[in-house]
Simulated assay, not measured.
Amino acid sequence: MKKLIIIALVVVSVGAVAFTLYNNKQEMNEAATLAMKSSEYISVTVEKVEEKTVNRNFEANGIFEPSQELKLMSETSGAVVKIQRRKGDYVRKGDLLVQIDDRLIRSEYTIAKLTRDQAEKDLKRFENLAATDAITKKQLEENENGFKIADAQLGALKKRLDDTKVTAPIAGFINEDYYELGTLVSPGMPLVDIINKNPLKLAVNVTETEISKVKKDDEIAVRVNAMSNQDFIGKVHFISDKADASFKYQVELIMISKNQDEIKPGMFGTAQFKFSQEEKVLMIDRKSISGSLKDPGVYLIKNGVAVYQTVKIHPLDDGSVEILDGLKAGDEVIASGLINVKEGTKVKVQ
């Protein structure tokens, strides 16, 4: 009997819970239906597309670089026996940096030179004999080939001998050296890093809208972040024809200021592109743009309904955007309430 009573109580409890949930669901559905009926439109504000004057001045950051920079490698093997230049020294093109032990190669070169000189004498004698038909044509050819081989061997040893004298291929400062007296070097081993910062370069990246304003040989004011109290000038030397992966173009400036020696490669610089002309463009606030800057659009209002319109824009520094395509002066776009707006939504301007 007790079991029957317990079962009955459980059944009644489950039924009560189910009834309560059903009533709650009905109430929620009725509330949602009522909300939809009462919200026949979304309240929004609008912004008018206006023609305003803008200045095309802009800045671009970059890092100063030397005009030439190379890591000089050894082309021979041996021990360093003489050091002529060290880190921090200025070198001219052709200056001797280090001398590598050349005694063995010099001996081989001397033997090769004697062999080559003897082969040259033998060839001249055989050419005279060939003129009187005293030797065969084959004998003459063998002597000619012998001379060519001896001459080639001498040339190879001359190159090896020259490689023991490590000279500077460019003018500049030795930024790092990798040798001491007695250091054993081998082909491909780095010896020195040389940088030539005359002239110094500043490479910056600019957008497709900005690149159209830059011309070769333009003189541009440059600010060095570490020397805020000094002014510098750079001349546009190079403008890339193709954008990089971020859709920006490289502009390279050659520094032409007299005080530029104080600038070190690796410092940060800012190129200040300033233009005297001002232009009138169509503008709206950035907040009126729906979607990202890569795929922008706006909502117009037609017959009380939101209509999506794709646009082409260019962001400006003051929080607004320039309309390049898709709208005209006087058009009104939805400025607020965009979070609830989509194509076809009924809207009402507040």
Rank of each mutant, 00 (worst) to 15 (best):
M1R: 06
L4H: 02
I6H: 04
L9E: 02
L9T: 11
L9M: 13
V10K: 00
V11N: 02
S13N: 03
V14F: 15
A18L: 13
F19Q: 08
T20I: 12
E27I: 10
M36T: 10
K37R: 13
S39M: 14
S39N: 15
Y41N: 11
S43K: 14
S43Q: 13
S43L: 13
S43H: 01
T45D: 13
E50F: 00
K52A: 01
N55H: 06
G62Y: 03
F64S: 04
E65P: 00
L72P: 06
S74I: 08
S77L: 09
S77C: 04
G78S: 10
A79W: 01
V81D: 03
K93L: 00
K93C: 00
G94V: 07
L96A: 13
L96Q: 09
R103E: 11
L104M: 12
A112I: 04
N128W: 02
L129D: 09
A131Y: 01
A131D: 14
T132H: 07
T132R: 13
D133H: 11
T136L: 01
T136S: 15
T136Q: 03
E142W: 00
G146H: 06
Q153K: 15
R160C: 00
L161T: 11
K165D: 09
A168D: 13
P169A: 07
P169Q: 09
A171S: 15
G172M: 08
F173Q: 10
I174G: 12
E176T: 15
E180R: 11
L184Q: 11
S186N: 13
P187F: 05
M189V: 12
M189G: 06
D193W: 04
I195R: 06
K197R: 09
V206F: 05
T207Q: 07
T209N: 11
V214L: 03
K215D: 09
A221Q: 12
N225V: 15
A226K: 10
M227Y: 15
N229K: 14
N229L: 13
I233S: 12
S240C: 11
A243T: 08
S246G: 02
S246A: 06
F247S: 11
Q250R: 14
V251E: 01
L253D: 00
I254R: 10
I263L: 09
M267G: 05
F268S: 14
A271R: 06
K280P: 05
M283I: 14
K287N: 12
I289P: 10
G291V: 03
G297F: 12
V305F: 03
V307N: 01
T310K: 12
I313R: 04
L316F: 05
G319A: 05
L324I: 15
D331K: 08
E332H: 10
E332S: 11
I334P: 09
G337H: 03
I339W: 01
N340R: 15
K342A: 09
K342H: 13
G344L: 09
K346I: 06
V349S: 09
Q350K: 14
